[in-house]
C-alpha cells in the first residue's frame, strides 16, 4: 500500500513562517491543511496522515497552546478524514515530545498522559490508526505505543528514525537498532512498525531487512525523506526526485516493506510515482 508524503515542508511552501506553530493551522487555516491532505489522496495514497506531528502537550506548550491539545488534534483528524472519505485510511500523526526521560526532564507518567490525551483527541476526530513517528528513544516510543493502545480502539503504528553508523549498522540517535525496536514495540502492542525520516530511501532497504529478520509477519511501514536537504538562495531543496524514489520501490518491497510513503521533502508527485510502481507490481 501507499502512504502520503511530507507535511512540514509542504506547509512551508504554503507560507508557514519560522516560529509559527504548524498544528495551529488546523484551526486558523483549515483550508490549506485540507488542500495538502487532498493532494495526497489525488496522488494515489491509500492512507494519509494528520497535521498533528507536534500536537503533544509539551510541543504545544512551546507556543503557549498547551490548553488546546484536544481541539487541535481533533481538528487535524477531521480535516484528513474529510479528504480521505470512507475509502481511505487516516493515520493520526504523533511525534516525540523532545523531553528526555533519562535527564529527568519528564516522568514516565507525564509522558503516558501526554500521549494518551493526544491519541484520544485524534480518535475523537476520526482517525483509523495512530502513527507514532520520528522516535529515537525506545522508552518514549514504548510509552507512546502503550498509551495509544490502552486508551483508543485504533491500530498503533510506530516508526523510528535510524542513521547508518560507521560500522554500517543502523542505530537511532539514542543507539537503538531496528531489531531492538521491533522486539520491544511488538510487545508493547504495536501492530505495524517501521522507519521514517533519515537520509533517503536507499538506507531504508537495510532497515526493512533487519526488521523482517526479527519478525516475518509484522507489517512494515516506511516514510522516507527525499534525501538530505540542499540549500540554495535561501531555500532548502531535496535531491531525490519522484523518479529516484520510485526506482527503489521494488527493492524495498522485495526486502519486506508493506506500506511506502514519504517524509521531509517528498511531494504529491513522489507519491504519484510510488503509487504507479506499486500498482504495476
Amino acid at each position: 500500500m501507499v502512504s502520503d508524503g511530507a507535511w512540514g515542508t509542504f506547509l512551508q511552501k504554503k507560507g508557514l513562517t519560522p516560529g509559527e506553530c504548524p498544528e495551529q493551522w488546523n484551526i486558523s487555516r483549515p483550508k490549506d491543511i485540507l488542500d495538502i491532505a487532498q493532494s495526497y489522496i489525488e496522488a494515489g495514497a491509500d492512507m494519509i496522515e494528520t497535521n498533528s506531528f507536534g500536537g503533544n502537550y509539551f510541543k504545544l506548550k512551546g507556543y503557549g497552546l498547551e490548553g488546546q491539545v484536544f481541539g487541535i488534534n481533533k481538528a487535524a483528524a477531521e480535516i484528513s478524514r474529510k479528504a480521505a472519505g470512507t475509502d481511505h485510511f487516516v493515520l493520526g500523526s504523533v511525534g516525540p515530545t523532545g523531553k528526555l526521560l533519562m535527564m529527568e526532564e519528564v516522568t514516565v507518567d507525564e509522558l503516558y498522559e501526554c500521549f494518551k490525551s493526544q491519541s484520544q483527541a485524534l480518535e475523537a476526530g476520526g482517525v483509523d490508526a495512530i502513527v507514532i513517528e520520528t522516535m529515537t528513544d525506545l522508552e518514549e516510543a514504548r510509552i507512546a505505543v502503550k498509551a495509544a493502545k490502552e486508551n483508543t480502539a485504533c491500530d498503533v503504528i510506530c516508526t523510528m528514525t535510524f542513521d547508518k553508523i560507521m560500522s554500517g549498522e543502523y542505530r537511532t540517535m539514542m543507539g537503538i537498532s531496528p531489531k531492538e525496536m521491533t522486539e520491544t514495540l511488538l510487545e508493547a502492542g504495536a501492530t505495524i512498525v517501521g522507519a521514517n525520516c533519515g537520509n533517503g530511501i536507499a538506507d531504508m532497504i537495510g532497515i526493512v531487512k533487519e526488521i523482517r529478520q526479527v519478525n516475518v509477519n509484522i507489517p512494515i511501514l516506511i516514510h522516507a525523506n527525499a534525501g538530505m536537504p540542499h540549500y540554495c538562495d535561501g531555500e532548502t531543496t531535496f535531491p531525490e526526485t519522484p523518479a529516484d524514489m520510485a526506482s527503489r520501490v521494488k527493492e524495498i518491497i522485495d526486502a519486506g516493506a508493506n506500506i511506502i510513503g514519504g517524509c521531509c521533502g517528498t511531494t504529491p508527485d513522489h507519491i504519484c510515482e510510488v503509487h504507479r510502481i506499486v500498482k504495476s507490481m
Partner: peptide, 15 residues
C-alpha cells in the same frame, strides 16, 4: 564521534 557510544552515554558523562 566514532559511534561507539550514543546520546544517552554522553548525557550521563555531561551530567
Amino acid at each position: 564521534r566514532e559511534n561507539k557510544v550514543f546520546v544517552p552515554q554522553v548525557l550521563m558523562s555531561a551530567k
